[in-house]
């Protein structure tokens, strides 16, 4: 029983990370209708930025918020400069541009910072928390807390602010939104900016666990896809919950199903994607898109 609870707890910890990256994916999908394949690399780059700031001697939280602000501006810039020229092109063209962005960011990060892994500090205490025989890492709890704070912020922003409403409108019906005076182009840019900022937060939460290197996000991005699919690509809360579910399932299956072990763990996550997609394509909490024909 103790092993079981311990596995669930550590599953929740990794799940929190998947959830935070999934949140960024869902964010950009909702705001712009595009799945951003460069999301993980953008987060990785932001984390390197934070590392540089920390090396320059800034205190952790100053570096944290400065990185989030710079990433916000960076996301805005990427949309304005790189994505905007192909805004009207077929979506596959935009996907290819995102892939281009992915390889550029990855390669430039490797060029500037080299491919050697770097340790990245955690803002939370190092001492694990004991509750009976079960051990919680303080960082793990911190990650889940930070993810929930970001989620709450997003909820309030989209639900109760005019700007949030305008962004939702711009994504759902660009033409009508333009008619009522919403600057749709800027709303898209804002979507990218927000996603970049959330990605930066996720990156800084992931880095203490997996260490900092240019490929650190690729593995996690896959699980984030699984989480977003499970929770539903239209539901930020679903994405976080999906992340926790994927984390826990992955751990439990890895521990209790003998022939799977650690080798086929990823395959389990992928099988989950397939099953969810076939049984309930919009995910557990996603909105079913009804189209008029």
């Amino acid at each position: 029983m103790e092993t079981f609870i311990q596995q669930v707890v550590s599953g929740l910890a990794t799940g929190g990370i998947y959830g935070s990256v999934a949140l960024a994916l869902v964010m950009i999908y909702q705001a712009t209708d595009v799945v951003n394949f460069a999301q993980g690399e953008m987060a990785m780059f932001s984390t390197y930025l934070a590392w540089t700031l920390l090396q320059a001697g800034l205190p952790y939280w100053a570096a944290f918020f400065l990185t989030v602000a710079i990433s916000f501006a960076g996301g805005l810039l990427i949309e304005r400069v790189i994505v905007r020229p192909v805004e009207q092109a077929p979506v596959l063209t935009i996907v290819i541009v995102c892939i281009g962005l992915l390889v550029i960011l990855n390669s430039v990060a490797g060029w500037i910072y080299s491919y050697i892994q770097k340790p990245f500090p955690s803002p939370f205490p190092q001492t694990p928390i004991h509750a009976g025989a079960i051990v919680f890492g303080a960082h793990d709890i911190g990650v889940i807390a930070v993810t929930l704070v970001v989620l709450a912020f997003l909820y309030v922003f989209f639900r109760y602010t005019t700007l949030g409403l305008a962004m939702r409108a711009a994504a759902q019906n660009p033409i009508s939104s333009r008619l009522v005076g919403i600057r749709v182009g800027w709303m898209l840019a804002l979507g990218w900016a927000l996603a970049a900022a959330i990605g930066a937060v996720a990156g800084m939460m992931v880095a203490p666990i997996v260490f900092l290197d240019p490929t650190m996000m690729s593995g996690i991005l896959i699980y984030a896809f699984a989480s977003a699919t499970l929770g539903g690509f239209t539901s930020p809360g679903g994405a976080v919950l999906g992340g926790l579910l994927v984390g826990v399932t992955e751990n439990l299956v890895g521990t209790y199903v003998p022939f799977i072990g650690t080798e086929l763990k990823l395959t389990v996550a992928l099988a989950m994607i397939l099953v969810v997609l076939v049984v309930k394509p919009s995910g557990l909490f996603g909105r079913v898109v009804v189209r008029r024909v």
Partner: peptide
Amino acid sequence: IPALRLEGLYLALATFALALAVPQILKY
């Protein structure tokens, strides 16, 4: 056949999962 139920993004994700799973299954 299962892909019939999926469109656009969701099909892309399902096939993406397939691409990821194959190297692992081959190793297994």
